[in-house]
């Protein structure tokens, strides 16, 4: 299977359906997500945004009784087959959560946690470790703030710093795709602004999919936008197009704030 067009897509799903027990959360979702742009997922609570996001690194399976059918291709490769190494998949598809969840260990250990669980310690000499820490923290512009406090517990940072750290700790794994599940909803206005800036800097190197409740954020911060309702994709267009000229009636109602 080497259709050049398909290989160029970051994420491609076909007829993806998902059940939590007997409840069907996703209905035949088919979507193409392009590389190196920010795609936002919007829609009312319970519409399946987060579920869809979690399909992209198969983390749904850790939450119990889940059945998935259909196809998800990440960088051209079908990830719902037996042969896929989940650890490798999660390495190339990282995730950032609603509530910053740094591990209760030091800042540097947080950053190294991912690489450490993927390599033997002798492959990570001190020089290499320092390099990884510096480059990861620089990429999220935390290096100058934190370089003298790398041994500090990550849980003592401010929420904004914590969330940046949660992004930074994905980077040593060299991900292709970063999934973000309402990454700003625990932050204040300043924090939101700086995280959004950071996200738009990151899009040159990573494909970013972001779930958000905040319509203004989707509008400001994303290139393409997907509107979901009751487990189905209702509209997928460039953000500008979707907000200015929605094709779907429900989309129009939602973005005007008539429900949601």
């Amino acid at each position: 299977m080497s259709d050049p067009e398909i290989d160029e897509l970051s994420i491609r799903t076909r007829n993806l359906s998902l059940w939590y027990g007997k409840f069907q959360a996703l209905h035949e979702v088919s979507v193409d997500i392009k590389p190196n742009i920010i795609t936002s997922l919007i829609g009312p609570s319970g519409c399946g945004k987060t579920t869809l996001l979690r399909c992209f690194n198969r983390i749904n399976e850790r939450y119990g009784n889940v059945t998935t059918t259909g196809e998800v291709r990440i960088l051209g490769e079908n990830i719902y087959t037996e042969a896929v190494a989940l650890a490798e998949l999660r390495k190339s598809v990282g995730m950032v959560f609603q509530r910053p969840n740094p591990l209760p260990i030091s800042i540097e250990k947080n950053i190294l946690f991912g690489v450490r669980s993927h390599s033997r310690s002798r492959d990570l000499p001190a020089s290499k470790r320092e390099e990884l820490i510096e480059s990861a923290l620089s990429e999220v512009s935390l290096w100058n703030e934190l370089k003298d406090n790398l041994k500090r517990k990550a849980t003592t940072l401010t929420l904004e710093q914590q969330q940046k750290l949660c992004i930074a700790r994905l980077l040593p794994l060299k991900p292709e795709i970063i999934l973000m599940d309402e990454p700003c909803s625990a932050l204040d206005a300043d924090g939101i602004e700086r995280i959004e800036e950071l996200i738009s800097e990151l899009k040159d190197r990573y494909t970013i999919v972001i779930v958000t409740h905040n319509m203004a954020q989707a509008r400001r911060a994303s290139d393409e936008c997907i509107y979901m309702y009751l487990g189905e994709i209702k509209e997928h267009a460039s953000t500008m197009e979707l907000f200015m000229n929605p094709k779907n009636e429900q989309t129009a109602m939602y973005i005007e704030g008539r429900y949601g």
Binding site: M95, F97, N101, I105, H118
Partner: peptide
């Protein structure tokens, strides 16, 4: 031990045992 810690580990590709050994048990 908060679920968020486990989620964080799994999403970096840590196995369940790595998660238990490095995060869940120490806490």
């Amino acid at each position: 031990v908060p679920m968020a810690f486990r989620q964080a580990c799994w999403n970096m590709g840590a196995t369940k045992w790595q998660t238990i050994r490095t995060i869940v048990l120490p806490n």
